[in-house]
Write a protein that binds this DNA or RNA. Structure first.
Length: 421
RNA sequence: CGGGGCGUAGCAUAAUGGUAGUGUACGCGGUUUGGGACCGCGUGGCCCGGGUUCGAUUCCCGGCGCCCCGACCA
């Protein structure tokens, strides 16, 4: 895309009411707009990142045979009353409203109850199992205090998945299968080595649930990790009993500040029973399926990536989620010969399937470089009069600052060879 | 929800009981052109309501909003 046509503008300074690094940089670079506390709009650049992350999640969920759907944002009161979760004393994040025609509705902060209810019409026989469904939904949660930019908002995009199985063995097998699928997601967005499958509070049905915790100073969680043994424990369940059951001692563990980017819950049969969801087994008996719930905070993950990879100049996107692979910075564009030439390079890169943000604005070089650093595309390709005369392009890798000088053919071959482009 | 802080132009900031200055951004003109360059001109602002006062952006009260710490976070 041509940068001259992008409606967003970069800013030198972050708004005074933003303290978090992720929100400051994302606003300065024109990725997001703050609508109110904890509520952010995703502008064209930001939406591209969200969609890149969603696509990675989508591919990994599809790979474990889950099917995508979209549930509703408005939810029925009766569904939640059945599980006693309409009660504000029990669930304190509800946004609620009233229908003009009469009756209350809630705004979805989770979709466990509606999914279970919806499945009553589709899950009637053991032959229908197993079932796994997922969605990307904007969750609405009336948090007491929003904070940390897009990492803890009142409105955020989450991937939530729900599995249903006929017996405990296949249920647990699926639960276990989600772990590598989740880790694939985190590897692909560049935080695999810093993300730990963490033992956390389990709730009524199991001793532990599992959280996916990514090392991040801006996070809200503390986990204790033993990298060699591959064990991570959320501090909320760190006690003698937990340590003993996992076979570690506290002094073998490293304390890390982390952000929870995903979690998985095993509900056993209890949740389905509460919801009144049953099917007929081979003997003709009505039984409740085993159920699991699995989340990934898509927009929170985006915030974590900014927090982890940014430097003093701005954002640094991992190639897998960057809005564009290449930031083509054209200089000396006031010269029509140069401009026509750079336009051609832009077209050639696009023809090869490289996603390119083309800074075709007639600005001074310093301003363009500063914007380019701030926006954080993986590669900057500088096309200038000087380069044209020398027959080379300056190619800068944003993350490392490494500079290469490539001929036009080398440039095209370089990006052809990159599978991520 | 408890505690603290803050609301001045698109953004960032300053001063002031007598209607507000600067930077940036924006518009026009000119000089510039490899790290946010310079000169000139111009547009644009005191969160809302009430009170005190001759007069309130300033002081007081209330509201709304925002930020931080804590609590909460399935």
């Amino acid at each position: 895309m041509r940068q001259s046509q992008l409606f967003t503008k970069t800013r030198r300074e972050a708004p005074a009411d933003e303290v978090s690094k992720n929100a400051q940089l994302l606003i300065r670079a024109g990725y997001i707009h703050k609508e109110m506390a904890g509520v952010y709009a995703y502008l064209p650049l930001g939406l591209l990142v969200v969609e890149k992350i969603k696509q990675i999640v989508r591919e990994e969920m599809n790979a474990i045979a889950s099917q995508e759907l979209i549930m509703t944002a408005l939810q029925r009161k009766e569904l939640w009353e059945r599980t006693d979760r309409w009660n504000d004393e029990i669930v304190d994040v509800w946004f609620k409203s009233e229908l003009k025609a009469g009756g209350e509705v809630g705004f979805g902060w989770s979709h466990e109850e509606p999914i279970g209810e919806m499945l009553k019409g589709h899950l009637t026989s053991y032959k229908d199992l197993p079932i796994s469904v997922y969605q990307f939904q904007t969750k609405l949660r009336n948090e007491m205090r929003a904070k940390s930019g897009i990492m803890r908002g009142r409105e955020f995009v989450m991937k939530d998945m729900y599995s249903f199985a006929a017996d405990e063995a296949s249920h647990l097998a699926y639960y276990e299968a989600t772990k590598p699928a989740y880790m694939n997601v985190f590897k692909r967005v560049g935080v695999g080595d810093d993300t730990f499958i963490t033992f956390a509070a389990g709730g009524a049905f199991t001793k532990f649930s599992h959280e996916f915790q990514t090392v991040c100073e801006a996070g809200e969680d503390v986990v204790y990790v033993n990298r060699a043994k591959g064990i991570a424990i959320n501090e909320e369940v760190l006690n003698e009993e937990t340590l003993a059951s996992l076979g570690v001692t506290k002094d073998e563990l490293e304390m890390l500040k982390t952000a929870e980017v995903g979690n998985i819950f095993n509900f056993g049969q209890q949740k389905a029973e509460d919801l009144g969801l049953t099917y007929k087994n081979e003997a003709g008996d009505s039984v409740a399926p085993f159920m699991g719930s699995y989340g990934i905070g898509v927009t929170r993950l985006m915030g974590v990536l900014v927090e982890k990879f940014a430097d003093e100049k701005g954002i640094i996107w991992p190639a897998s989620v960057a809005p564009f692979m290449v930031h083509l910075v054209g200089l000396n564009l006031e010269d029509e010969v140069i401009r026509d030439w750079v336009d051609g390079v832009y077209q050639n890169l696009r023809a090869r399937g490289v996603s390119v943000l083309y800074d075709d604005r007639d600005l001074r070089p310093g301003e363009k470089f500063a914007d380019s650093d701030l926006m954080g595309m993986p590669y900057r390709v500088v096309a200038s009069r000087k380069g044209k005369e020398a027959g080379t392009f300056e190619v800068v890798t944003r993350a490392t600052g490494a500079v290469r000088h490539l001929t036009e053919d080398e440039l095209y071959n370089d990006f052809d060879a990159d599978p991520d482009t």
